[in-house]
Amino acid sequence: MQVKCRNIAFRYPGAEKALFKELNLEFIRPGLHALFGTSGVGKSSLARIISGAVDAPAGVVADDAQPLLYAHNLERLPDWSAIGDQLSRVTPPHNRDKIERLLDLCGLNGHTGQRFSRLSLGQQNRINLVRYLVQDFQVLIFDECLANVDELRRRNILLHIKAMYPEKMFIYISHHVIEVATYCRDVWVLRDSSKLPQAVLTQGLDLFPDQQPASTRLHQVMLEIMNAA
């Protein structure tokens, strides 16, 4: 299972500066990986290019891991019916057994009768993530999908996703350096296009439930990530 970007070049129409110049990076194993970087370096744009929503004029995106889905935190569910009904409708029959567990994990069990617009921002992001997790996928890119969710629940969700889907690849886009350093395996740090190489690989601690990070090692990884950025 792999997702490879080779010599990607991209510039938004009308922009003076290229967003990507000969960008190279690859995710080659299942697990929770991260795409990290400061605001505006192009994390979401790269995710859109990888998912095929946007075409890059130069370079190659190769993956042998289809279906590849891209979820982001600005998505909404239609408000014409309750979220529980919508979740059942978009879940393939063989994944129905996961719904209850994921709703429980995300703390949404008592909210399935509500409309999307009635939920808090954190709940909206979580229900959006749940509906992606019940799809058939090999790779899921989730872009700030845990924004507005409290730390403890974020930790819980990330750890359980890793445990529930050991064969799947997750690419987590986040600004949260502690989270990325603690729970992710390959952390690709995306930088401004004036810096070469534009993407630098660092290794996260990739912790699983019941594992505790050694504080010095965590600090070291965080420093590596911040230095790379």
Binding site: S51, A53, L69, A71, H72, L74, E75, R76, L77, V90
Partner: peptide, 12 residues
């Protein structure tokens, strides 16, 4: 786009 994205991504 914020609603249609999911259905496009999942081919629905």
């Amino acid at each position: 786009t914020d609603i249609e994205h999911f259905y496009q991504q999942t081919g629905r």
